[in-house]
Design a protein around this nucleic acid. Structure first.
Lengths: 299, 299
DNA sequence: TAATTATCATGAGATTCATTCATTATGTTT
DNA sequence: AAACATAATGAATGAATCTCATGATAATTA
């Protein structure tokens, strides 16, 4: 209930210096202070730590035990302290990202690759937001960044805009809807719609396009993987609605066509949500920059 | 240069209690003190340790690092502190014994066996005093107890009397000197004397018996082991002078005889030398008791 | 939404505690 | 034995740390 790290440091210094005065210098104290310190320790433990009748001050068994402790413990402490200072300077840290949209993998992976090269010491992880609400998790410190398309007004969380996207219908090039210059909700009434396996409230097609118009597609099929969805669409098993960043890359290859939803196109804005106090953490800022300037594949 | 063990204890308590007030109780402080403490730590590292906008106080990454440190380090410290308190109470310790006389092995071994059963935690060792001066080594803390037959007046060392012994001449039972009721120095002038392999100044036969009378034996042979010396004597290769504790046991068996040196017998007193401050250490006192009451083999 | 409760933060004053300065005591060396 | 080096001591200072009282904030309940 009394031993402190400073005592261990003193002990180590005394052992190295074999002389109170020099040891005192090393720990930025006076010889007197050290003498008082070890006297207090000895009183506390009820046992001498040094043999007093010899001049090159020698440790007793008890003193040796404490010294061993110091040798084991002090380097460990020093290591953690160094790490904490780096943490404070923002040179290292944790970046656990929650994404609400499956499709975000498509652009997030390359961005994270670039990020990792730049900040190798930051511990990176992605959690797909299925079973938990990401914003409360962010507030509670379980995760550090949320990719979201609907910003909220919160006083402990900031939403940084990343980039605009457009959700477009994807069909086979031979599909009749590929003839139209833009798609209206009614166009999907007779179509099989292929989506990611999440609730409808979390899919723009339903919340912003079909449900407002009271339209229900012929059927809904689900698939986890973007590549699989595109494959199904190409082979005329259905149509899908996907953000443009997924499409730019792949439409050329497969026999696919994309068309805007509504005449104006269904646009959205993607945000990165952060805890407000970490708003200025260097590596987080850089992640946001990387996400904004992510390698845009040509159309 | 600032983190102290008390901080680690507080951190651990807070994490366990999830609540400053209860944690404060655990470390015998007020809630306020804890709050100030972590505030100071955060100021020192320039990084928050807890997320402040949540009520069940949660650790940040930095806080977690410190907590991990606490979990690793505190038990180690607790262990050493417990050991130190036992050391102070004299329940454990070190008993490194230096002996000046070879023959002492004979009674010391059984005594140490008994001692070890009684004080299993005390670290026992024996060093035969050949290359170093045992009393200075005792003063310097290299060893903890010296078996010696010539006590000194020192203010940091006490000499505890153990027991009296008598140095006697050992011969084969058929040897002419076995006829005499006691031995005079001149009797050895024509004899081969077998001794332990140490300097003459450290052998009573020379310092107290032969040299004062100016007598030199016919020859001197040496052997490390008491058993070998007795064997040589039994087979008439020479005579030896040994303390009685060695002899009592063995004379019956071999064809040996023992005779006193001089009419009065050459008696001596064996001492245990200790550092004065350790004079009252329990296990040292008990060692001395055991040495005094060592199992006396019948004559 | 307001009221209540639980919890943490803050500031000022009190206290403890570590440190320093000056000096004495002790051991070591010549 | 003297001179030197080193450690121990005591009193005074000052900084660090605590407590008390209170304010602020989040969580819970009505």
């Amino acid at each position: 209930m009394f031993l402190e790290i400073r005592h261990l440091r003193s002990l180590l210094a005394i052992d190295e210096a074999t002389n109170l005065a020099r040891a005192a210098e090393q720990v930025h104290l006076t010889q007197s202070a050290l003498s008082h310190q070890i006297k207090a320790l000895e009183a506390y433990y009820g046992a001498p730590l040094f043999l007093r009748n010899t001049k090159p001050l020698r440790l007793t068994l008890a003193g040796q035990k404490l010294l061993e402790l110091a040798r084991r413990v002090l380097p460990e402490i020093a290591g953690v302290e160094k790490e904490l200072l780096r943490l404070a300077k923002g040179e290292t840290g944790r970046l656990h990202i929650a994404i609400e949209c499956h499709a975000c993998f498509e652009w997030l992976m390359p961005v994270l690759d670039a990020f990792r090269r730049r900040w190798p010491e930051v511990e990176v992880d992605i959690r797909v937001g299925v079973s938990f609400d990401p914003i409360p998790a962010l507030q509670k410190g379980d995760i550090d960044l949320v990719i979201s398309s609907d910003p909220l007004e919160l006083n402990d969380v900031v939403f940084e805009p990343l980039f605009e996207y457009e959700a477009r219908l994807v069909t086979a090039r031979a599909h009749p809807l590929a003839e139209k210059s833009y798609i209206e909700p009614g166009d999907l009434a007779g179509e099989i719609l292929i989506t990611y396996p999440v609730q409808r409230q979390r899919l723009d097609v339903f919340t912003r396009f079909l449900q407002p118009a009271g339209v229900e597609p012929l059927a809904v099929r689900q698939s986890e993987l973007t590549a699989v969805i595109l494959l199904l669409v190409a082979s005329q098993r259905g149509v899908a609605v996907l953000p443009d960043w997924v499409l730019n890359e792949t439409i050329q290859k497969g026999g696919l066509a994309t068309r805007p939803l509504t005449a104006q196109g269904m646009k959205g804005l993607l945000y990165a949500a952060l805890r407000r106090p970490e708003h200025d953490v260097l590596y987080l800022r850089e992640f946001i920059e990387l996400a904004r300037d992510r390698d845009l594949p040509e159309i």
